[in-house]
């Protein structure tokens, strides 16, 4: 209990919230890293997945890439990138590693979503004289949207977690509060940082959950009418 009250008093000390290493700065870094890398990952993964799914090609790659991604330690990739020339560009290794780990869930879910679209509907669309592009954007993507959004949600949570680990390799973000706490041998600061990181991750997950509930039924995947 003692540690918890110490962590609480660390969190409620206003000096810890402001300044270059303050909580607000770290929170902003974490948020920017997550949002920017999520956008980059979506721009890379979604077009590839949608086209592959539309053509029905490359399925083995799109599905297995998630399993490969799981076997490679995030920390190892961060450090390897840090020691390459990319390491000279400040947050370069963090951004590249974050994107690398966010792409697989996006790719796999979007691809599976596209393949699971009822083929009768696709055939009907073709029979109505739709072109490939029309079928893709007016039929397949809307029907695959629930799974695509699930991929975005998994990727976002993954990004928050990976951005935390980036602190171990010198990257910015809330994880730095934890590593600095370990440096100072301050258990209170380590716990306080961990609470902030956990809260951030749970809020991101909660926001996606909320968005999926509020979305129209079609996007939720509840009914296809």
């Amino acid at each position: 209990m003692n540690i918890l009250s110490e962590a609480w008093s660390w969190l409620t000390t206003s000096a810890h919230w402001y300044g270059q290493d303050g909580i607000w700065t770290r929170l902003a870094q974490h948020l920017v890293l997550t949002v920017v890398c999520l956008l980059i990952s979506c721009l890379i993964a979604l077009p590839v997945a949608l086209v592959l799914g539309h053509l029905g090609k490359g399925g083995a790659l799109a599905v297995n890439i998630s399993n490969i991604g799981r076997a490679v330690p995030t920390f190892a990739v961060l450090v390897l990138l840090l020691l390459t020339p990319i390491g000279r560009f400040g947050e370069g290794p963090t951004v590249v590693a974050l994107v690398l780990f966010a792409v697989p869930p996006l790719l796999t879910n979007a691809y599976v979503g596209m393949r699971e679209v009822d083929q009768d509907v696709v055939r009907a669309a073709r029979g109505m004289g739709m072109t490939g592009r029309q079928m893709l954007f007016q039929v397949e993507v809307p029907l695959a949207l629930p799974l695509i959004m699930t991929g975005v949600r998994i990727a976002a949570v993954q990004l928050v977690a990976t951005a935390t680990i980036a602190a171990l390799a010198g990257g910015g973000g809330l994880g730095r509060i934890i590593t600095a706490g370990f440096n100072l041998a301050s258990t209170a600061q380590v716990v306080a940082g961990a609470v902030l990181v956990a809260a951030f991750a749970l809020i991101v997950e909660g926001l996606f959950e909320l968005a999926q509930r509020l979305a129209p039924g079609r996007v939720r995947g509840g009914n296809t009418g």
């Binding site: 706490g181 991750a201 749970l202």
Partner: peptide, 11 residues
Amino acid sequence: YTVPSLAMFSL
């Protein structure tokens, strides 16, 4: 599962 690993170890 949602709690990032570094935070989990720290907690």
